[in-house]
Every structure is written in structure tokens, then in C-alpha cells.
Design a protein around this nucleic acid. Structure first.
Lengths: 350, 350
DNA sequence: CTGTTAGCGCTTTCAC
DNA sequence: GTGAAAGCGCTAACAG
């Protein structure tokens, strides 16, 4: 207990200089290299020396300086960065969680950052992470990654693209089967009896949204219907904006009997608008979210496994770091429908 | 353009050794220190030399190795880590986003990790981050931070605790006004006409939950009611578990006319159970969430500004890093009610 | 204004 | 098994 008092750390306000390996070596009366061996878990150390080093380490409260160790060429930083549109968006939570989880199991650490769809910010983030010598980068690219992107991407030791493929860049890519998903969602609405189905989504400039829209068109044409451009509502980024647009649309054309919300913000916006109007329409969303099971009727969605996407991304980036130099992989994750009821509402039922 | 071709980066598969400052100095025909000055944006460099260095840097595609720069004593890693219960939980999204945003503006980078309420994991994460010489740590401590926590916390150069204060540890702390919030939520239910009000929440071992429960008791007593232990449902961590518990409770005691969901998972569980039962009860939640505005009637909640909490956390940690060694701050954020209707439902209205 | 020299804390030859 | 010496990429004196 007396010992306790002696070991007591200096108050945080007086930043105590941390002990170094040399300090440990001196206290234990051994060479620097032996301490290094001990710290790195190498086995060829005599038991008594090993014990002495262990004591010195806890006496000095030594902690290896990982940054110092990692500047050596050939060494990894064991740092992976993730750049997404906006961390504050719950949509990316499952993704981030799955990535962090998979990486931590392998001793890697995850840095997160939001690009906010801003080209300059995206570029700046990538450059900053290169300076920090991240071993790999997982990115949902911004709409416009900028002219320097191709060259910048080439500097990244291991790169995985999520959700938005980019043929200009050499990288592993993981996407959902967006076209099949768009088709599936639209088919559900058709089966539910809808005939005038609106497509609601973000900018069609996004590869993923465009693919979902193509699937929507596929399904309509297969049913002998002609996609009506007036029913294509694209470009709203927030749920509120979507909601206002849906208000306008339904006011202008009350014959619309089905809505496909092609991402979760769109679906939320649609539900909000219908709620405010006190009207019912058949609705199918893309991507699942908590509120989907709480509304009445519950929301039918087409979804893919975001956690799986995160795990795959982590796997791919780690594989590259470990030296896999085979052709870039392009993974398409399957989509599934979760039918909960909202796909088959008829307006008159209200 | 010929130059272009020469500059072309080696394929990712052949990890090109990055150029160092010495390479840049050699190519530009200047001293090492001058390059260092240039890179660090110092001004006292002759224009022509400056230009030569700039050219050499882009020719060699040089990027400063931040890790190498930061091992120098007195230098910062400009790394802050955030440990929360679970990143995959959307509840923490706004928090994480606000922290990342505030830190990025100051050039700091955010590492995120989930403790999953696990003591060993929490300890391991903190130790790993100390090895990486993070400048600061923002933590939502796990229920049981473990016996070594007090000493470990003392090693952290700048520490901010969120949501769960810990008197044993010297740290800045930010909490919501949980007791006032619990009281406010309960008062809303009382005003709405409820008399038998259930408290639904996570473990009362959590400081924040316990405080909300105390507020709930305060309000009941002020109204001349006696808190009934049978109406205290604590310990469920997932929305599903809450939902099952609520089912049982309402089956056992149909006279319950109000429910206080003391965190967002509890509120979601309550809404799910009521939905399944096809029953209505007055409900007030703690913490706002997207689904709250989509259910009918919309959910009334007591909430605080999570983004503000994140910003304050970032501010505090940066202030400490910059040498503020005043007394630890304990910030209590105000709570507000958002009345949306669910507080005044009478069961018979259904 | 610029360059030389000496480290930072660690790992890595390579002898003993 | 162990240790001395060299060096990673960079910055901090300190001369010129």
C-alpha cells in the first residue's frame, strides 16, 4: 500500500514525460533490444530477465510509443480511415459499426470523417490521411470527387469504394444490387395494385440512385406501363425537402397511388408528407430503418445488409494491406424485400 | 505532358517507397531544414528557393510523414479518440458527427471505437489509444469501467466523460439534466391526465437512468402520488426486450395509463408493444429520434441537444490539450420538452 | 535566410 | 540469449 502511494501518477496538469524503452532498459539493467523483444512478445528471453523487465515496465508505467515504432519503413500504421457523406446520418451507423468491429478484431484502428459531399473537403481529407500514412481507406465517394481524384486515389495503399463505383479508379468496390432492388420495390407496388407509381430519390447523378431508377423503369415496362417523367422526383437531399415535394406532387396529381422512396431519407419524407396530409398511399422504401416498423401500416422495404457491406469492406482492405495484388474485386450485394404491409394500400381504403 | 508520363505513379501492387524530405532537399539542391520550413508553412524562404522546393515536391509526389514528425517530445499527435457504447446505434450518430466536425476544423482527427459496455474491451481500447499517444479521449464510460480505470484515466492527457459522471476520476464531464428531464417527462404525463405511470428504462445502475428515475419520483410525489415499484421496469437493453416487458406489464395491470420511456430504445420498445397490442396509452420519451414524428399520434419527448454535447466535448478536450489546467468542468445541458401529442392520450380514446 | 548537427523512441542488423 | 550501433523521417538548436 505504501507502494501505491509512491506509484501515484503526477497530476494531469503537469504532463509527465512518459518513460521510454531506454528508461526501462536502464532500470532493468538490460539492453535496449531485450526490452524491445519483451514488448513485442518475442520468446527468446531468459525468465529472470523477462521478470526484471516486466517489473521495470510497471514501475515506470511504460507504454510503447506506437507512432515511433511505425515510422520504420515496411511497418504499418494499422490505421484505416473511413470517409462517408455524413457520420451524423444514422444510415451510416450500421456500416461504421461493422467496419470498426471487423478492424478492431485485427488490431487496426478506425478514423472516421464526413465529406459532406464536398469535393474540396474530400480531397483535403484524403491528403491528410495520406500524411498520416493510413494503411487503407474506405470511401463512399462524393458525387463529384474532383479532377485530382484519379491521381490521388492511386496513392492510396489500399482503397475500397462503397456504394458508388468509379470506373476511373483502381479499387475494390462494393455496391448493393441497386437495379434489381429498384425493380423489386416497383414490382411489389405493382403487385399491390398500384398503377401510377412515383419514383422519389436523390440526384440521378449518383450511380446508385440512377441504377435504382433504371430498375423502377424496368419493372414498369415489364408490366406494360410507360414511365411518366412527371412522376420522377429526384434531387431532394433531406427528408424535409422530399416531404414538401411529395406534398406538391400529390396536390398536382391525386391519381398517384404508389410511391417508391429510393433511399431512407426519401422514404421518411414520403411518410411524413402522407402523415401530414392524412392520406394513405402504397409506399415501398429502399434501405431499412427503425421507424419502418413503428408506422401504421408498417413500411415495406427493399434492403441489403449494411453490416455485411461493412464487414466485406474491412475484409477487402485488410486483404490488400496483407499483400493481395490480384485484380480489383467488384462485389454486388443481394437485395431482399421485407414486406410489412405498406406495399398494398389503396387510397380509397383510408 | 511528357512530364506527366514520367510522374505516373507505380501501380498500387508495387508499393512505391514514398519520397522523404531528404529526397526533396537533394532534388531541389537545398538543405533539409529549408524543406522542413517550406512544408511547415514558414515564411522566411527566398522566392526562388521556395519555387524549386515546390517543384521538387510535386515531381517526387512528396507527402510529409506526420507520424515521424509527431514522435518529437512536446509535439501532439492531433489524434482524439471517442469510445462509446456502440457506434452502430444511431443514437450516437449526432454526437459523433458533431465531435468529428468540431475536431476537423482544428486539424484533429477522430478515432472511434465501441466498448459495447464491456469492461475488458474498454480497458484494452484505452491502453491501445495511449500507445498511439492520442492527445485526448472522449468517453461514455461503460457501466463497470473496472478496477484499473481510476489509474488508467489518470494517464490520459485530456479526458472528457459524457453522459455518465464518475467522481473517482479527474475529468471534464458533460451530462444532460437527467433528473429535471425525468421530472419534466412525468409532469407532462400527469398534465395529460395519466395517474398510473410506468417508468421504463435501462439498468438503474447507470447514473443517468437513476437520475431520470429520481425525477420521475419527484414529479409523482409533487402530485401527491406514491411511486409504485411494480411500475418500474428497468434492465432491458434492447427495444425488443422492452417491448416484451411492456406486453407483460400491460397484461398484468391494464390500469396503467401512461408510460415514460427513459431512453430512446425504451421509447421504441413501448411504441412497438402498443402497436402490436393495438392499444393506446400516453407515452413520453427521453431523447428525440426520427421515428418520433412518424408515429400517430406523434411522440412527445424530453430531449437535449446531442450535437451541442458533441461540440462541447470537442471544445473541452481541445482546451485541455492547449494547456488549460483549471479545475475540471462539470457541464449540465438543459433539457426541453417537444410536445407532439402522445402525452395526452386516454386509453378509452382508442 | 540557410545548412549542419544532433536527437525523438523505436526496430533492426550483426556481432558476441 | 543478448547488446552496441546504425538509422527510420522528421524537427530543433545553433551556427553561418
Amino acid at each position: 500500500m505504501t507502494h501505491e502511494a509512491v506509484t501515484r501518477t503526477v497530476p494531469r496538469s503537469t504532463p509527465h514525460k512518459r518513460a521510454t524503452m531506454a528508461d526501462v532498459a536502464a532500470l532493468a539493467g538490460v539492453g535496449l533490444k531485450t526490452v524491445s523483444r519483451y514488448v513485442n512478445g518475442e520468446t527468446n528471453i531468459a525468465p529472470d530477465i523477462s521478470a526484471r523487465i516486466g517489473e521495470a515496465i510497471s514501475a515506470l508505467n511504460f507504454r510503447r510509443n506506437f507512432a515511433a515504432a511505425s515510422i520504420r519503413p515496411g511497418r504499418h500504421s494499422e490505421l484505416i480511415a473511413l470517409i462517408i457523406e455524413d457520420i451524423a446520418n444514422p444510415f451510416y451507423s450500421a456500416l461504421t459499426g461493422a467496419i470498426e468491429n471487423a478492424l478492431r478484431d485485427e488490431g487496426f484502428v478506425l478514423i472516421v470523417a464526413s465529406s459532406e459531399e464536398d469535393t474540396a473537403r474530400h480531397t483535403q481529407l484524403v491528403e491528410q490521411f495520406l500524411e498520416r500514412r493510413v494503411d487503407g481507406l474506405i470511401i463512399v465517394p462524393p458525387r463529384d470527387p474532383g479532377p485530382q481524384w484519379v491521381r490521388l486515389a492511386d496513392e492510396i495503399p489500399a482503397l475500397v469504394l462503397l456504394d458508388r463505383p468509379d470506373p476511373q479508379v483502381t479499387a475494390d468496390t462494393i455496391v448493393a444490387d441497386d437495379r434489381a432492388g429498384g425493380r423489386l420495390a416497383t414490382e411489389l407496388l405493382l403487385e399491390g395494385g398500384s398503377r401510377r407509381i412515383a419514383f422519389v430519390g436523390e440526384s440521378l447523378d449518383l450511380v446508385s440512385v440512377a441504377a435504382r431508377h433504371r430498375g423502377y423503369q424496368d419493372a414498369l415496362r415489364a408490366a406494360g406501363l410507360t414511365p411518366d417523367p412527371a412522376l420522377r422526383l429526384a434531387g431532394d437531399r433531406s427528408a424535409d425537402a422530399v416531404s414538401r415535394t411529395v406534398h406538391r406532387l400529390l396536390a398536382a396529381d391525386p391519381t398517384i397511388d404508389g410511391l417508391f422512396g429510393s433511399n431512407n431519407r426519401s422514404a421518411v419524407g414520403i411518410l411524413g408528407a402522407l402523415r401530414e396530409l392524412g392520406e394513405q398511399r402504397a409506399v415501398v422504401g429502399f434501405d431499412d430503418f427503425e421507424a419502418a416498423t413503428l408506422v401504421s401500416p408498417q413500411l415495406t422495404v427493399v434492403t441489403h445488409d449494411l453490416a455485411e457491406m461493412g464487414r466485406r469492406a474491412a475484409d477487402l482492405v485488410l486483404r490488400r494491406i496483407r499483400g493481395d495484388d490480384t485484380e480489383p474485386q467488384h462485389v454486388t450485394l443481394p437485395v431482399t424485400a421485407i414486406r410489412r404491409g405498406s406495399d398494398r394500400i389503396r387510397p380509397q381504403e383510408k
